[in-house]
Design a protein around this nucleic acid. Structure first.
Lengths: 132, 132
DNA sequence: TAATTTATTGTTATATTATAACAATGTGTA
DNA sequence: TACACATTGTTATAATATAACAATAAATTA
């Protein structure tokens, strides 16, 4: 059996929901929203999320325990992610800046460690909240 | 009452433990280890951790839900943190690279957002694990 | 096609991480 | 001393995530 290159029913249901949302969704909020589609247990959601993260269709916002769809149409693997997070309204935006990603992907220090992946989260106030 | 500029007993107990550890500690592992010192409930640990993170004495490794002592003696506020994490042995090291921190602290994009804080986590294999 | 293998599913239970609420105590300031 | 307010201790519970295992489905190969 070769590695699955399509989405299963549960994965598709979860992905559809996350893609429809403009903001990160929490696992149990996803669960609540897909119960009418037959996903009744947390594990069904977590398993779908795990796979979707693995193949890069969604990202986990670690500091928020929440999930967003990847906005880069070319996103195949999620080995380089950067987000901005508004600490007031919690709006999260994926940062798509080639200079930044190039800089971080090529980053090396004297630890002898080879970095294959990174996740960066910026915090601050978004335009709207700044002007309040 | 002015803002506290010293550590309370509970905070000091938790900090001592985290500083002694060479690796990140989980909250409930901290709890287990400080029970003989009188901290019996999770909240006592979480409250101490919250304050210690706030004043920059320790950092939270978000992707691991674990806490490490800040290794920069000059660390006052923890608004700029970067770590390397070995995905095999889970060794975590705080990255202290002024070029990197300068680059990220000055990072701006066209979102109109002012970034006051960031957290970066690199993943890969450490020297030891790479050679296995 | 049948047998084999492997991935995925459904399900129950439980582990892990974190916070709400509130009374009691301590500490700085007026 | 009286007050304001931060911190503490405590119980209960919320929120996040995984273990274990039987059942089902899909790909492989004989």
């Amino acid at each position: 059996m070769q590695k699955q290159n399509f989405l299963t029913k549960n994965q598709q249901i979860v992905l559809d929901l996350v893609e429809k949302s403009s903001q990160p969704l929490k696992a149990y909020s996803i669960l609540f929203n897909v119960q009418k589609k037959g996903l009744k247990a947390p594990l069904q959601v977590y398993r779908a999320l795990d796979k979707l993260v693995e193949i890069g269709k969604i990202h986990k916002i670690e500091s928020r325990n929440a999930f967003v769809a990847c906005k880069n149409s070319n996103c195949v693997v999620s080995n380089a992610t950067a987000f901005s997070i508004c600490e007031s309204c919690e709006k999260v935006t994926e940062i798509n800046n080639s200079k930044l990603s190039k800089y971080l992907s090529n980053f090396e220090d004297n630890s002898g460690m080879k970095y294959s992946k990174y996740n960066l989260e910026f915090f601050g106030l978004c335009k709207k909240c700044k002007n309040k």
